[in-house]
Design a protein around this nucleic acid. Structure first.
Length: 278
DNA sequence: AGCCAGGGTCTGC
DNA sequence: GCAGACCATGGC
């Protein structure tokens, strides 16, 4: 990935398959906001980043080269050739249509703990409300960052909270699930580090030991939190797609990258003008 | 007002 | 193993 350093900014040029709006606001992560047109802010670990997309540049504002390499390159999966992967999807006409309309989505490699909690919160919920709950979780129990935001509270911190504490989130029945996850992770009963090393079947089983974590939440955690691109979360939208277009399952061309195909199809089915007012 | 949302648990067959 | 009620909350 080519970049240049300009004072405190990192400038990306000549990149491929990176559309910030599609990537940051497509429902895989819930902490990015578009303030002005083409300007996005979000927080990962204890670092708040401002991104500006203009002309053919993406500017990572007020960050260091070290942080860029160690945090933002893996987070945006910048070393992976998304062009080659999405090209290989082209034999499927539906994914091809999704790519034509929404090219530039990448799968973000989020923090496992944050992804786990985010998708526990996501169950039977809608995206704007998920964002609100997570925002209140961070403001209430996270730590202030230099960029004026809050970090996502870690499992230790959350394991010391009660359901009454979490009532400020207005997350309803999901509060007890968050606490069960926090207690199991903080106590070491479930090791997120170990899950990195597990075969995907074992990883699913391990995550589903947490109350409130079923197949969908486990799959999302593996895809967005552990970078398992072969994970394939099926929510109500993807369920519709499968029923409407893939009665025999996903096409062979998506093999090993089902999660990426899923993200394009999900975003396409929800947002394409071709599906409005069906 | 009623339906829906990036589902899961619990119960009853 | 599978269907159905139920779960909190808020946008539309």
């Amino acid at each position: 990935m080519d970049y240049t350093v300009r004072e405190n900014d990192i400038i990306l040029e000549g990149f491929d398959c990176l559309d910030l709006r599609n990537t940051l606001l497509c429902g895989q992560a819930f902490r990015w906001k578009e303030a002005d047109e083409g300007t996005f802010t979000g927080t990962v670990k204890s670092h708040t980043l401002c991104l500006v997309e203009k002309d053919n540049e993406i500017i990572f504002r007020n960050t260091s080269e070290k942080l860029f390499k160690e945090l933002w390159v893996p987070y945006f999966d910048l070393e992976r050739d998304y062009r080659a992967i999405t090209d290989s999807f082209r034999s499927d006409k539906y994914i091809s249509a999704a790519l034509d309309e929404f090219y530039g989505i990448r799968i973000l490699h989020q923090e496992p703990w944050e992804a786990l909690c985010s998708f526990i919160i996501s169950q039977n919920n809608n995206i704007p409300r998920i964002c609100g709950i997570i925002e209140r979780l961070c403001e209430s129990f996270g730590t202030a960052t230099e960029g004026g935001d809050f970090s996502f509270p870690d499992a230790d911190r959350m394991s010391r909270l009660t359901e009454a504490d979490l009532s400020v989130l207005r997350a309803g029945f999901r509060n007890k699930y968050l606490l069960d996850a926090a207690q199991k992770v903080a106590s070491g009963e479930i090791s997120l580090d170990n899950i990195y090393e597990m075969p995907i079947e074992d990883a699913r089983t391990e995550l589903m030991k947490i109350k409130g974590v079923g197949p969908k939440v486990a799959e999302c955690t593996l895809l967005y939190g552990f970078g398992r691109l072969d994970a394939f979360p099926v929510d109500v939208w993807v369920k519709r797609i499968m029923a409407e277009m893939y009665s025999d399952g996903l096409p062979e061309c998506t093999k090993n990258y089902e999660g990426i195909a899923q993200q394009y199809l999900f975003h396409w089915r929800r947002n394409s003008k071709n599906f409005k007012g069906e």
